[in-house]
Amino acid sequence: MSEVIVITSGKGGVGKTTTSANIGTGLAALGKKVVLIDTDIGLRNLDVVMGLENRIVYNLVDVIEGTCRIKQALIKDKRYPGLFLMPSAQTRDKTAVTPGQMIKMISFLRDQFDFIILDCPAGIEQGFQNAIAAADHAVIVTTPEVSAIRDADRVIGLLEANEIAKMECIVNRVRPEMVRRGNMMSVDDVIDILALPLLGAVPDDENVVIATNQGEPLVGTATMAGRAYRNICARLLGEDVPLLHFDNSRHVLAKLGGVFRKGQGAKL
């Protein structure tokens, strides 16, 4: 039985596309058959984050309009045997697709894949409605900032109204050093406010930028973000993986401080 997961956030720029790319790649690395679908029509980006932008022939709108068969629009990622991308259209807009058409297309894909990951556009308009229409499970990405959390809360309300029963949250771009100094909300603070189960927390890691520059998802690498994404994928497969413990104390003074503040390192 396949699972359809929508990656959403409300606010733009919190890391939906990066999260989608890493979850899709991570699940494929764990042996699952995965299709990533970029539902952001007019502003496609998942293809560049995945490093597959030069291989696009057909796209999501071509499939919906019947210009090509589903298989022709699926780009096979050569790095993993079970990983595919359906790119979005760059020259069209959100009105080119309806929620009913998305449900129909995804019902065809369910037979062939273990996971269908939908990268949702920012906002709560038609693009969002298209992306959530066929989802079984929603992953809400947020950062520890007031604007992102407010938008996440609004999106959660809309997902509840659309009867998406399974919802989990990823807290992205956490800076443990700032949390420790009392200048950033912690993962626990965010979960307390949103009252959703936590799927994982990802540190603000410069390796994400380096990976995106090269079109190589970093899931599974030895970087902090790579390990955090790997754990998120394992949790999606039902494994009980504890949160990463990330001690960011680089300076001698911070380390000395750490002795007196035993056990207070931020958990990721």
Binding site: E145, V146, I149, R150, D153, R154, G157, V179, G182, N183, M184, M185, S186, D189, D192, I193
Partner: peptide
């Protein structure tokens, strides 16, 4: 601490949003 300020502001804001 701005962490506490942010959390307090959000709690009030989200209640009226909801």
């Amino acid at each position: 601490k701005t962490r506490a300020i942010a959390k307090g502001r959000l709690k009030i804001l989200l209640i009226s949003d909801r």
